[in-house]
Amino acid sequence: MDLGTDDQLVEQIFQVNQSERAFILRELKEFDLNLVQARALIYIGNHPGLIQKKLAAHIGKQGATTTNILKVLESRAFIIRQVQASNERQKQLYLSPSGQETAARVKQIFIALEQQANSGLSAADQATLLALLQRVQANVEAAE
């Protein structure tokens, strides 16, 4: 898409997103995970005991889709779902030992991407860019 200068910012953000996705997907092939599964794995590792509803909100997926993601992760022995004593309908999510190891390795992919994206930018440039992108995000969300 090329609309000239009317979409310059949006087009650049799109191109950055495409480059990031390509980098991550290339690196995730080793683990046979897609981007959403990888993000779910890392989030569960950072929030042990969380419930599916909170994971769904974080990854931006509907409950049924999140259930399918969790089924795949559970079938591959990356996660463990435990029934809460106080609520038998809710299950808490934890990483298995294999899931912890995989999540740590997957997290390194995201760290490598962060380092690559920030290379050549000063700390001040990084802070400015982050603040500007947060404002852009808020502007887009205000239009929803």
Score class of each variant (00 low, 15 high):
63 G>C: 01
13 I>M: 10
124 A>I: 09
98 S>C: 01
110 F>P: 03
132 L>T: 15
94 Y>G: 04
138 A>P: 11
130 L>K: 14
76 R>A: 10
54 K>C: 02
40 A>L: 07
119 S>F: 10
16 V>T: 14
45 G>W: 01
113 L>N: 06
48 P>G: 06
1 M>I: 12
141 E>H: 13
128 T>E: 14
17 N>Y: 15
20 E>S: 15
86 S>Q: 03
120 G>H: 09
115 Q>N: 14
51 I>H: 11
110 F>N: 06
6 D>E: 13
77 A>G: 04
118 N>C: 07
18 Q>H: 12
59 I>Q: 08
62 Q>M: 02
44 I>N: 00
100 Q>A: 09
50 L>P: 00
34 N>Y: 01
86 S>T: 10
110 F>H: 08
96 S>M: 01
17 N>H: 13
50 L>T: 12
95 L>V: 05
15 Q>G: 04
98 S>H: 09
20 E>N: 15
144 E>K: 14
50 L>N: 04
114 E>P: 04
117 A>M: 11
8 Q>C: 00
22 A>P: 09
15 Q>I: 08
78 F>G: 01
44 I>T: 06
2 D>K: 07
33 L>Q: 09
51 I>K: 11
94 Y>N: 00
3 L>F: 11
91 K>R: 14
41 L>S: 08
5 T>N: 13
80 I>D: 14
142 A>T: 08
28 L>I: 02
144 E>A: 07
61 K>Q: 14
30 E>V: 09
87 N>G: 00
43 Y>Q: 05
18 Q>G: 06
87 N>A: 02
109 I>P: 02
134 Q>Y: 06
8 Q>T: 05
24 I>Q: 06
14 F>H: 13
50 L>A: 05
57 A>S: 14
16 V>R: 12
31 F>D: 09
112 A>V: 01
71 K>Q: 08
104 A>M: 06
93 L>S: 03
66 T>Y: 02
114 E>R: 14
100 Q>S: 13
124 A>C: 01
41 L>N: 01
122 S>P: 05
129 L>W: 03
6 D>P: 00
101 E>F: 03
53 K>Y: 08
75 S>G: 13
143 A>D: 12
14 F>W: 06
131 A>P: 03
62 Q>W: 00
34 N>F: 02
134 Q>G: 10
32 D>P: 00
10 V>G: 07
139 N>I: 12
144 E>Q: 15
77 A>C: 05
116 Q>I: 10
28 L>G: 06
25 L>A: 07
118 N>A: 10
79 I>L: 11
116 Q>H: 12
102 T>W: 00
94 Y>R: 04
11 E>Q: 11
46 N>W: 00
52 Q>Y: 09
131 A>F: 10
55 L>W: 02
73 L>A: 01
83 V>A: 08
116 Q>K: 14
111 I>H: 12
13 I>G: 00
26 R>M: 05
100 Q>T: 04
46 N>A: 13
116 Q>R: 12
134 Q>T: 07
13 I>R: 03
62 Q>K: 10
132 L>E: 12
115 Q>L: 14
36 V>E: 12
127 A>G: 07
63 G>A: 09
144 E>C: 04
82 Q>T: 08
114 E>A: 11
12 Q>R: 12
108 Q>L: 11
